[in-house]
């Protein structure tokens, strides 16, 4: 592994001051992505600034009843938290479907947002890859692209975003709080991850020196339920081929507040606004779900090896919508 410098930051301001103006510095918390990629020589930081012990590790309720999740909350702690299991079920399920228990014990909320793609051409440090080496071309476009994106791709990159957690956060309309050299700001989840376009090496909206401090979730709307469904090549410990996070309620037989996001099929956590519009106010039924799923995948562009992802994601989304309907029915029985 290449050498680098290491510093443990004593506070948020100190961490930001160290990173400001340093293009080759990376923040380090759990290390499950960064250390892996430094070992592969895909990431080449000159300095790692350890923020993993900063006290950003609590889950709190805000005044409106939403949730404030500290950047350093470990994936396992977030997944098992009673409020998350009760009010943001899809988030808990997404987290528990990702990685392994050992990795979830280290991986942090902010680190999960910053996860890099699992595209094998990006990770092999050999093939052309515009994300790893801008301008070098994309080996996946004409290569073995079975795991690649059918939504949000470009002529430069079709790498999928690997996170499960982020798919649920997209559906729940999370907000990302950051601190930077010029103070603090909030980034709506939909604006955080960038589409690859001509610049697939730019993956997020953070500016140099900005540090994620928390992720906030709006209050759960009364009468809604949610779920996360994931399809993959083996039953556990594998990235999604397709996944769906879904939340909605049913009032007088009609769908209210539908929120849908897809994972495993897109270059960023993929919010499905058109499909949501399609569901809003409809009488809940399987055919309505199937129609919404068709709308969600309408813009899909397939490549040689990944055409199967379109029907897979469509069926998975329809099933997730049905599952939420079932959960709502069970909730009302309990009440």
């Amino acid at each position: 592994m290449r050498p680098f410098q290491y510093q443990r930051a004593a506070g948020v301001r100190e961490a930001i001051a160290k990173a400001e103006g340093c293009q080759t510095c990376s923040f380090l918390a759990g290390g499950t992505t960064v250390i892996d990629l430094v070992k592969l020589d895909v990431e080449k930081p000159e300095m790692l600034i350890d923020v993993g012990r900063l006290p950003m590790d609590t889950i709190l309720r805000d005044e409106e009843g939403g949730l404030i999740i500290g950047a350093n909350v470990r994936n396992s702690d977030l997944a098992w938290h009673s409020d998350v299991q009760r009010d943001y079920k899809a988030l808990s399920e997404a987290l528990l479907s990702g990685a392994s228990p050992q990795l979830r014990n280290r991986a942090t909320t902010a680190g999960n947002l910053m996860q890099r793609t699992r595209c094998p051409y990006f990770r092999d440090n050999y093939s052309p890859c515009n994300k790893r080496e801008p301008g070098s071309d994309c080996a996946a476009l004409a290569g073995y692209n079975r795991s690649h994106a059918v939504l949000g791709g470009s002529d430069s990159c079709i790498a999928t975003h690997p996170s499960d957690m982020c798919v649920a956060l997209a559906a729940f309309e999370a907000t990302i709080r950051v601190e930077g050299p010029n103070g603090s700001r909030s980034i709506p989840f939909a604006d955080f991850h960038l589409l690859p376009g001509d610049t697939p090496h730019l993956e997020h909206a953070l500016e140099q020196g900005e540090l994620i401090t928390a992720v906030t979730l709006p209050p759960k709307r009364a009468g809604t339920a949610s779920t996360y469904l994931k399809s993959r090549d083996r039953a556990s410990y594998e990235f999604a081929l397709a996944s769906a996070a879904v939340s909605f309620g049913i009032e007088e037989g009609c769908i209210v507040e539908p929120k849908i996001a897809l994972g495993g099929v897109a270059t960023k956590p993929w919010r499905c606004y058109e499909a949501e519009k399609n569901l809003e106010g409809q009488v809940a039924s399987l055919s309505v779900y199937e129609k919404a799923a068709e709308v969600a995948l309408a813009e899909a562009e397939v490549f040689e090896c990944n055409a199967f992802k379109v029907p897979l994601a469509r069926n998975l989304l329809a099933r997730a919508l049905s599952e939420v309907e079932g959960r709502l029915a069970r909730q009302s029985e309990v009440i």
Partner: peptide, 29 residues
Amino acid sequence: CDHGQCGACTVLLNGRRVNACLLLSVMAD
């Protein structure tokens, strides 16, 4: 595997199971 994929290096860190291959020793100070 040395990349957090196999679990052979699992240890308890402050009582919780983690992959020792994805931790810098200095992080465990």
